[in-house]
Design a binder for these strands. Structure first.
Lengths: 254, 254
DNA sequence: GTAGTTCGATTGTCCGGACATATGCATTGA
DNA sequence: TCAATGCATATGTCCGGACAATCGAACTAC
């Protein structure tokens, strides 16, 4: 009688394509992630040890380790020395990416609509100049947008973008998100500094979001940097707290 | 005439101690991080190539790469194939850690005071039971705290903790943070699911935080998991937006 | 002068091995 | 019965090398 199977990866049909330009470790990590997502690898189950897994796939141990490590960084796996690697019990969804509101809503299954209120060039105020690291009074793009879901306003977004980075087409702004436009313009987003707070709505804000004056609003300010360190966007956003809140997963850095 | 120095790491006195139990790659990454923090490595400057750096330190290239990679993951360095590795221009501070409010305030130089309002055991409501994954009606700890800065209330924290995990000493709760107590109790924090929103203060909330009724409040709910997937804490917090906002740095995952 | 090409430099990927170290379990001993 | 010991196991760290892919700049050809 065969001994009971303890390594769930053996029945997983893992395989790598050496002729593909996709790195081997990436192929493996994708397959493992899909297996976790799909439920083939259940939470708490132990992966077989790295050496055997490498031998089975015809890979070296460093390559297998690199694949596993990327999933550990994502919070999907936990390694324990002397024990093994196991799938985390808790359901990890998104470890807080730098996503736009557009992407957020789209991921939530909603079909966000965007109305561009303003798309012009203005002189940078002291606040904007400091955030974008440009001279006060110099030209910057100013974009004001209203995000709607189910016909109701959800958020008012005001963004400032340095000149020359991007072709800010109004139609494109309404069809997709600002971040997506930046990425397709060849800008490599790197990091962002955010501040989330709350305050009472002013008369103008209340009007825009169809809320009573003085109603609580959720606010977010963000400066986004590309990988050369340039500030590529400064945004001041207000959200209707009854329609939107920030939800995300945090990972503890070991 | 000697050619101008282009590799800032040569004048950095990098060295590793092979007799130390601290991993070599970690020693190196710490020294590099300190040099960046200290200003010895200025933003935008290129690190020397990995091969030469490895040779200079008497390390292998994989070890040097591991050190550099950890700083890339922290957002301090950027690698460019064919070009080199350089220090990011933008000032990265904290890539959003799973920190407690206590730690947040302490890092900001403030000396937070804590007043424990309630420290008792209650029956889990449906909401708490769902968050902590325990049976409805079973015993859980309930801790209510008020955080003060400069004598003024800043936040009201209500936490639920499963029984048996922790010795919830009231004095210790006032002297340090809940997360610190968990860590020293041998609990390995892994991830947390958070929701940040806003709403108008109820009469009771307004009373606690010395705000008028209906004033906007910043709210945060959090479920924290340890590395075995257990929920170890569920918290519902309200903050005075005039005194506190969430500030953090986000990194784009490549 | 400009566009295309070549080439050096640097990181990206991958291999195969070696030893260290922590964990859990079985064995041994008091 | 219970605690200390030893052992198998798995990950953690580190090495030295090899080739591929990409970038930027110098060079060449038109």
């Amino acid at each position: 009688m065969p001994k009971p199977e303890v390594d769930p990866t053996v029945s997983l049909e893992l395989s790598v394509d050496r002729s593909s330009p996709v790195p081997l470790y990436f192929q493996l990590s994708q397959q493992l992630e899909a297996a976790i997502e799909h439920g083939a690898l259940t939470p708490g189950s132990l992966l077989g040890n790295e050496i055997e897994l490498a031998a089975r796939l015809g890979l070296s141990r460093p390559t297998v380790r690199q694949a596993i490590q990327s999933l550990v960084d994502k919070g999907l796996l936990v390694r324990r020395r002397g024990v093994g690697t196991q799938v985390v019990h808790s359901q990890v969804k998104r470890p807080l990416e730098l996503s736009s509101l557009y992407d957020d809503l789209e991921a939530a299954g909603q079909r966000p609509a965007t109305k561009v209120l303003v798309n012009t060039v203005v002189a940078a105020t002291a606040e904007v100049a400091a955030a974008l690291n440009v001279a006060e009074g110099s030209d910057v793009h100013r974009v004001e947008r209203l995000r709607l879901a189910h016909g109701e306003p959800m958020a008012y977004l005001c963004n400032f973008i340095p000149p020359g980075l991007l072709d800010l087409d109004t139609e494109q702004l309404e069809a997709t998100g600002l971040y997506r436009m930046m990425r397709s313009a060849g800008i490599t987003l790197h990091s962002a500094r955010q501040t989330i707070g709350a305050r009472a709505a002013t008369a103008a804000e209340a009007e825009r979001l169809a809320e009573p004056e003085g109603a609580p609003l959720l606010t977010m300010q963000r400066v986004t940097f590309d990988d050369t360190g340039r500030a590529v966007e400064y945004g001041t956003h207000t959200y209707r707290p009854s329609r939107y809140s920030f939800e995300f997963q945090l990972l503890v850095r070991p």
